[in-house]
Design a binder for these strands. Structure first.
Lengths: 76, 76
DNA sequence: TCATTTTTACTGGTTTAGCAGCAAAAATAG
DNA sequence: CTATTTTTGCTGCTAAACCAGTAAAAATGA
């Protein structure tokens, strides 16, 4: 996964949801510039900005590794 | 997924890999402050910084939604 | 065609992320 | 206990993320 792919995914989902950038930005509580930057694969966007946008698009983010199961076991 | 959980996951994996923060930071090509911030759930870390650290830890990041399959179909 | 909306692309200003360096506390090793 | 390593937490500095505003190009629709 990289920022370019993330951008494409965000744009695709925004189009499906029928939202303009400004509408998306307003819902996410970020500026329209941030949505523009994310969709253009800007790699330096801040995590919270990205997460807000992903949340509006109903996109879940998941981390995977061979040790995730062990992590979840020890978590509880 | 949120920044606090990401931080815990990163720390867990770093411990498993037997790396100190500084070693992890050096491998990832970021400063030790960035690793510290990520592990402490700082939500304003930049995406590229986070991705570099995740890469060193061999943690994959994945986006999920009901439309991801459609996205991948139209991608090719 | 013409009007509206959306997207792209810049602006200046404010805030802050990331950095290295330092030092003290905490953990680890011998 | 002692020495070493690691972690925490601060510093000032530089670069840049984010924002709202503006405007023009592109797309959409009536």
């Amino acid at each position: 996964m990289n920022s370019n792919r993330i951008g494409k995914i965000v744009r695709f989902h925004r189009k499906i949801s029928g939202l303009s950038r400004e509408a998306c930005a307003r819902l996410a509580g970020v500026g329209k510039t941030a949505v523009y930057d994310v969709e253009h694969g800007k790699s330096t966007v801040q995590l919270d900005t990205l997460l807000k946008i992903l949340a509006v698009m109903n996109i879940q983010i998941e981390l995977q590794s061979p040790f995730m199961k062990q992590f979840e076991d020890e978590e509880s």
